[in-house]
Design a protein around this nucleic acid. Structure first.
Length: 647
RNA sequence: GCUGCUGUAGCUCAGGGGUAGAGCGCGUCCUUGGUAAGGACGAGGUCGUGGGUUCAAUUCCCACCAGCAGCUCCA
C-alpha cells in the first residue's frame, strides 16, 4: 500500500507503484490534462515519474505555480528548438541550453553562421515538432556508462557538461521514442509531458558566446528565444519590448537633440544645447543637495604624472584601462578615477581631528579605456563625469558618515521618483591591496552602518573594489529594469599609500579613514537612465524647453511674442512657433519634442491677457491668465515636481 | 577585445553590376486657421573609408572605421 499525501492534507491510497500522472488522473481528468510536472517530497520530477513509496505530492500546473510552470515550459521549449536546429543543421553540436529571464537560449557549435533570416525556418520546424506532441521520455545511465556513450558520440561539450554534473548517474531526454532514432539530449530535467506543452515562442536573436564564459575558448553561436505560457502573453511581452525600444535614450537623445556621437570619438559624447540644459539642472540640484549636507567642492586635474598612479596602485591594478601621454619627456596618465587627486588636496597641509569629517566633493571628468564592444550610448562611455566625493574622518565616524551618505542618496533618488531601491554589500576581491585586517575592519564598519540604518541588503562576496569593500545602490526604473547608481566605498589603503595624516587630541599623528562615494554614479549614465525612465517626458524643471507659445495665426503673433517675452523674463525656457501652420500642426510638432506646456494664443486670449494651456500627454486645455501660468509653472519648477502640476 | 549583423538625403528607411528613390524634415508660394499633419512647387546624396574583380562597382570580394545585438569586462 502506498500513501500519497496531497497539498491539502488529503491522503490517497494506491496498492501498486503509480506514475505522478496516474495520481493526477485519480484526482481528476481536468488536472491530468493541465499538469506539467510534479513535486514529490520537495523534488521536482516528470509526470511520468513512478512513485514507489509513501510521499507528499504537489502537481504543478500553469495556474498553481505560474513561475515554475513557465520555467519548465521554457526549458522544454529549448529542447524543441535544439531539435529543430539539429534537424536543419545536422552537423550542429549542442552545447548548453538554459532558461533566462523572458525566455531561453541554446548555445551551439556550428561553423555555418545562423542569421535572423533563418529564424522563421527554425520556428517552422519547432512548430512541426510541437504539432507532433512527442513525449519527453527520460532515461538514466550510470556515470561510466553515460560518459562512454557521450565519448562515442563525440560531442566534447556534452562530455564537459557531464564532467561538471554531480551525482552517480546521468539522465537523458528523448523527444519521442528511445527505441527510434529520435532527438535526445543530456539533461537533468524535468520536462513538461510532451512537445505540445511548451507554450508560445519566438526565436529572437543570435549572438556569439564563449563556452562557459571563457574568452580563451571557442566562440559559439547562441540562439535566443522568448517563450510564454500562451500567445497572448507572448504578444504582450513583444509589445513591451517595442515600448522599451521607443524609450531607448539613444533614440530619444537624437529626437530631442540632447547629444550625439561621432566617428571621431567613439565613447566620447557630445552634449548639445538641449542636453546641457538637463545637465546643468542636474548639477544645480546636486550642488544644492551637497551644500545642504555640508560638503565642499574641489576640482583636480585630468592629467597627472604617472608616478602618482604607481603610488595609488592604479598602475598595478588598472593600467590596461588607462590612457597615457608624454609631457616634456615625462610620463603622464589621464585620470580614470578622482581619488588620488583628492588625496593630494588633503595632503597639501596638516589636518587636525577637529576638522573631521572633511567632505570633499568633486564632479570629476574621468577617462577609461573600455573595450569597443561594451560602449553603449551614454550608458557606457570612455569619458564620463563622476559625481564623486571623498570623506576623510576618524574611525569612529565611519558609521554615522555612511549613514549620512545613505540618507543623501535616498533623498536624491526620491526626487526623480526612483523609489524602488535595493542595496548590495561587496567584499574583498581576489585582486586587492591592503591587509586582511584592514578589509575586515572596513567591511564590518559598512555592515554596522547598514544595520543602524535598518535597510535590507544582499552580500556579493569578492565583488569589492581593489582598495576596499563597498555598498552599491540599485534602482528600478518605471519599466522595472534595475540599474546600479550610487556606491559607497570604504578605503583604508589610499590614506596609507599617500601617507595622509591628522593630529589627534594627544598631539600625535594618525591615519584618517577615507570614503569614496557617488550618488548618480556617472552623470552621463544617470542622464541616460532618466531619459529612459521618463521616456523623454521630463518633469518641468528638467525640460530643455518648458513652454511654447502658439499663435493661432499671424494676426495674433504680436501677442504671442509679448507672452514669450514675459515667460522669458520670468526665467522660463520658452519659445514661439510662429510658423505659417495651423495650430494642429504646431501642437503635433510640440508633442513630438515632448514640450510640457503648449500655450495657444489667439484673439480670445489676447482679449483677456491669457493663454490656453495644453498639457503634454493630455488632450484637454485650461485657459488662465498669463501671470497665473507663470506663477504656477515657477512653483512647479522650484519644487522640482515630478508630474506636470497643471495636469 | 571576440562572434554575428548593419552603414544609401538632416531623420526613418526602400532599392540594386549600367549616372539613385519614398515619407518626414527643410525652402518658396498659396492659405490666416482654435488644439496630434491645410495645399502646391522646389532644393538636398562621390550610396562609411581604402583597396580589388569588371568594359563598367553605390551594388560583388577583401581590409579598415563606426554603429547594433550578444559574450567577456564594468577595477
Amino acid at each position: 500500500m502506498i500513501n500519497i499525501k496531497l497539498p491539502d492534507g488529503k491522503i490517497m491510497e494506491f496498492d501498486a507503484p503509480v506514475s505522478a500522472l496516474a495520481v493526477a488522473e485519480a484526482i481528476g481528468p481536468g488536472l491530468a490534462r493541465v499538469a506539467l510536472a510534479a513535486r514529490i517530497d520537495g523534488h521536482l520530477v516528470d509526470l511520468s515519474h513512478t512513485i514507489t513509496a509513501d510521499c507528499d505530492i504537489e502537481l504543478i500546473t500553469a495556474k498553481s505555480n505560474p513561475e515554475l510552470a513557465l520555467e519548465l515550459m521554457r526549458h522544454s521549449c529549448a529542447h524543441v528548438m535544439a531539435e529543430a536546429i539539429c534537424e536543419i543543421y545536422p552537423e550542429a553540436q549542442l552545447v548548453y541550453g538554459p532558461t533566462v529571464e523572458n525566455g531561453f537560449y541554446y548555445d551551439i557549435d556550428l561553423d555555418q553562421p545562423i542569421t535572423p533570416d533563418d529564424f522563421s525556418e527554425i520556428e517552422k520546424e519547432m512548430k512541426r515538432i510541437v504539432a507532433e506532441a512527442k513525449p519527453f521520455v527520460r532515461y538514466e545511465m550510470s556515470l561510466e556508462e553515460a560518459m562512454a556513450k557521450l565519448h562515442k558520440e563525440g560531442n566534447c561539450y556534452k562530455v564537459e557538461n557531464a564532467n561538471r554534473a554531480k551525482g552517480d548517474k546521468l539522465s537523458f531526454y528523448v523527444s519521442g521514442d528511445p527505441k527510434d532514432d529520435d532527438f535526445e539530449d543530456l539533461c537533468l530535467g524535468p520536462h513538461v509531458p510532451t512537445t505540445k506543452h511548451v507554450g508560445a515562442f519566438k526565436v529572437m536573436n543570435v549572438a556569439g558566446a564563449y563556452f562557459h564564459g571563457d574568452a580563451s575558448q571557442k566562440m559559439l553561436q547562441r540562439i535566443y528565444a522568448t517563450s510564454f505560457a500562451d500567445k497572448k502573453e507572448l504578444k504582450q511581452y513583444l509589445f513591451q519590448l517595442e515600448e522599451a525600444k521607443k524609450r531607448d535614450h539613444r533614440v530619444i537623445g537624437k529626437q530631442l537633440e540632447l547629444f550625439t556621437f561621432h566617428e571621431e570619438g567613439p565613447g566620447f559624447p557630445f552634449l548639445h544645447a538641449n542636453g546641457m540644459v538637463i545637465w546643468n539642472e542636474l548639477m544645480d540640484y546636486w550642488r544644492q543637495l551637497h551644500n545642504e549636507a555640508a560638503y565642499t567642492e574641489i576640482r583636480t586635474p585630468i592629467i597627472l604624472n604617472e608616478n602618482l598612479w604607481h603610488k595609488s596602485g592604479h598602475w598595478d591594478n588598472y593600467k590596461d584601462n588607462m590612457y597615457f601621454t608624454t609631457i616634456d619627456d615625462g610620463a603622464y596618465a589621464v585620470k580614470p578615477m578622482n581619488c588620488p587627486g583628492g588625496c593630494l588636496v588633503y595632503g597639501s597641509r596638516p589636518h587636525s581631528y577637529k576638522e573631521f569629517p572633511i567632505r570633499m566633493a568633486e564632479l570629476g571628468l574621468v577617462h577609461r579605456h573600455e573595450a569597443s564592444g561594451t560602449l553603449h550610448g551614454l550608458m557606457r562611455l570612455r569619458q564620463f563625469t563622476q559625481d564623486d566625493a571623498h570623506i576623510f574622518m576618524l574611525p569612529e565616524q565611519i558609521e554615522s558618515e555612511v549613514v549620512g551618505v545613505i540618507d543623501l542618496i535616498f533623498k536624491a533618488y526620491n526626487t526623480f521618483g526612483l523609489t524602488d531601491c535595493h542595496l548590495e554589500l561587496s567584499t574583498k576581491p581576489a585582486k586587492a591591496i591592503g591587509t586582511d585586517e584592514m578589509w575586515d575592519k572596513a567591511t564590518s564598519a559598512l555592515e554596522g552602518a547598514l544595520k543602524t540604518k535598518g535597510v535590507d541588503y544582499k552580500v556579493n562576496p569578492g565583488d569589492g573594489a581593489f582598495y576596499g569593500p563597498k555598498i552599491d545602490f540599485h534602482v528600478r526604473d518605471c519599466l522595472g529594469r534595475s540599474w546600479q547608481l550610487g556606491t559607497i566605498q570604504l578605503d583604508f589603503a589610499l590614506p596609507e599609500r599617500f601617507d595622509l595624516n591628522y593630529t589627534d587630541n594627544t598631539n600625535t599623528d594618525q591615519r584618517p579613514v577615507m570614503i569614496h562615494r557617488v550618488v548618480f554614479g556617472a552623470v552621463e549614465r544617470f542622464m541616460a537612465i532618466l531619459i529612459e525612465h521618463y521616456a523623454g517626458n521630463f518633469p518641468l524643471w528638467l525640460s530643455p524647453e518648458q513652454a511654447r507659445v502658439m499663435p493661432i495665426s499671424e494676426k495674433t503673433n504680436d501677442f504671442g511674442y509679448e507672452v514669450l517675452k514675459r515667460l522669458e523674463k520670468a526665467g522660463l525656457r520658452a519659445s514661439i512657433d510662429a510658423a505659417d501652420d495651423k495650430v494642429n500642426a504646431k501642437i503635433k510638432r510640440a508633442h513630438g519634442l515632448k514640450i510640457p506646456y503648449m500655450l495657444v494664443t489667439g484673439p480670445a486670449e489676447k482679449e483677456t491677457d491669457s493663454v490656453a494651456v495644453r498639457i503634454r500627454g493630455c488632450n484637454q486645455q485650461k485657459t488662465m491668465k498669463v501671470d497665473e501660468f507663470i506663477a504656477l509653472a515657477n512653483k512647479e519648477i522650484t519644487q522640482r515636481q515630478n508630474n506636470l502640476a497643471l495636469a
